[in-house]
């Protein structure tokens, strides 16, 4: 029992990320408004990015920018220990994912503006009713 409790406390970050992912997924499926669905999509995306970034965290490590000495590095041999710096690879992958995320957000919002022009509403059920009436 104490094992279980200590595991739960030691990994509290992961449980909160999972909660955020569940909130985002629920909003994408169950919300009726298209903008709310897009907000849910962005939340799901940021929760996944948060999870990736948290993989790179190391205890007692600093940000992944090396101590810089003039002379462009090759005449002063710098000794770098990997344990002193946070793992930079998840950061690189997620940095581009954020910017691509905002570009896809723009496309999603453009689609919702087009839908509003056509049906004059953003509610999913009202749009579906109008589509059925047109048939």
């Amino acid at each position: 029992m104490t094992d279980l409790v200590s595991t739960i406390i030691a990994k509290y970050n992961y449980w909160i990320y999972i909660t955020l992912m569940m909130i985002g997924l629920y909003a994408m499926i169950a919300k009726n408004n298209l903008i709310k669905k897009i907000v849910g999509m962005s939340m799901f995306q940021t929760a996944i990015i948060l999870f990736y970034v948290s993989i790179g965290v190391k205890k007692g490590a600093t940000i992944p920018i090396l101590e810089y000495s003039h002379g462009h590095g090759h005449d002063t041999q710098l000794v770098v220990h990997a344990a002193d710096y946070v793992n930079p690879l998840p950061h690189v992958l997620m940095l581009t994912a954020i910017v691509v995320g905002v570009a896809t957000l723009g496309v999603a919002l453009a689609l919702s503006i087009r839908i509003y022009d056509r049906y004059n509403t953003l509610e999913e059920d009202e749009i579906l009713t109008q589509i059925r009436e047109e048939k």
Binding site: I65, L66, H72, G73, H74, V80, A82, Y85
Partner: peptide, 13 residues
């Protein structure tokens, strides 16, 4: 982390 400075001379990994 260890080879970036030697290979690219850029401190921000």
């Amino acid at each position: 982390i260890e080879k970036t400075m030697e290979e690219t001379s850029v401190p921000n990994i």
